[in-house]
Design a protein around this nucleic acid. Structure first.
Lengths: 180, 180
DNA sequence: CGTGGCATGTAAACGGTTACATGATTTA
DNA sequence: TAAATCATGTAACCGTTTACATGCCACG
């Protein structure tokens, strides 16, 4: 089985939400480590419901828009737990920037340095986003029992970003010395 | 167009080689940033040849096994160069370890810490591999004009590995304090 | 001479993204 | 009531991995 349904089960284990919310959550607090498209989420929700791992929540309030909220079942929780125990697959390495850098000598002057410079800028922006997410989590989810785990993931993001920024500084210096 | 053919063009821009060699190279010196399967490589070689971006090399020596070496054409080199200039696509984020850590509270005690511990061990081994690759490159390709670029890619690998090792130390400490 | 690894190749299945379609609800 | 956006859903396409098939060549 793909890991998509487990990502969904995981989010639903935190709190009931709709397919739309799931997408939202992934693209906000988890964007740097996971993502899903709607084309994956809705069919997966169907299958999960058919397998009794999640259940649709009856909408009481009329305030909500036309939307279907799901909650995880006991069975779903159990299934999620066994999946959590399996050693995670390493993600297949496909870093286009590094590929381009590897063949960088062939590129026109300045091209490769441009890529690296853009990376550094991205990472700067990204570092700010991470800080903002952390602040928000610490305020809005102050007492949430999952919070320590979320902060761990976040700190991995921070570590990676800082590493990339350090590296791009060095790389730019090297590239500078190389060309002229 | 997919990036697979460009990865192939890139390797052939360094020196002529066969499909088998291409796979070998990717799984050795580039394994941490790129990979391809045979099921991708051979069809891609066909298409590249049809497009006159690469050309089969006539085997002079009879010593070689049944194998087809290819070399990049001038057209291929030009195509590669324009691709190098395009800003690289960021790889879609799909880090299963982080996903499992994010939902880590639900896991049985020790499970998540186990994942992190395994990561640390992997990274230790990996750091050694990187050192070995660097040593080898500095000796065997001492004068190669591409060497500085390869070392840059390598140093990104080192940076990442060290970051992950630092992070796993911290994460393990946090997880320790969390459970009991 | 036959076994094992080298080398090439292909078909099928899979996972995922993209693009599109559709309606419902809010807001201007 | 028109426009914007929320929300769900699906079909087609694409890239990739996997599994399998096959023959060649070296070596014991």
């Amino acid at each position: 089985m793909s890991t998509t349904p487990y990502a969904i089960l995981g989010l639903l284990s935190i709190e009931p939400m709709s397919g739309y919310d799931i997408r939202q959550n992934l693209n906000e607090s988890l964007s740097y480590f996971w993502s899903e498209s709607f084309g994956q989420i809705y069919p997966a929700l169907r299958r999960l419901e058919a397998a009794r791992l999640i259940a649709p929540v009856k909408q009481a309030t009329r305030t909500a828009r036309r939307r279907q909220t799901y909650s995880i079942t006991a069975l779903g929780r159990a299934r999620l737990r066994t999946w959590l125990a399996e050693p995670p697959m390493p993600q297949p390495p496909r870093n286009e920037l590094m590929l381009k850098l590897f063949f960088g000598r062939l590129a026109a002057p300045g091209v490769t340095a441009g890529h690296v410079r853009r990376l550094r800028i991205q990472q700067e922006r990204f570092a700010a986003t991470l800080k903002e997410i952390e602040r928000q989590l610490r305020v809005e989810r102050r007492e949430h029992p999952d919070l320590p785990y979320w902060l761990l993931v976040l700190s991995a993001g921070v570590e990676r970003t800082e590493g990339l920024m350090r590296w791009s500084e060095d790389a730019l210096a090297v590239l500078q010395r190389l060309k002229p």
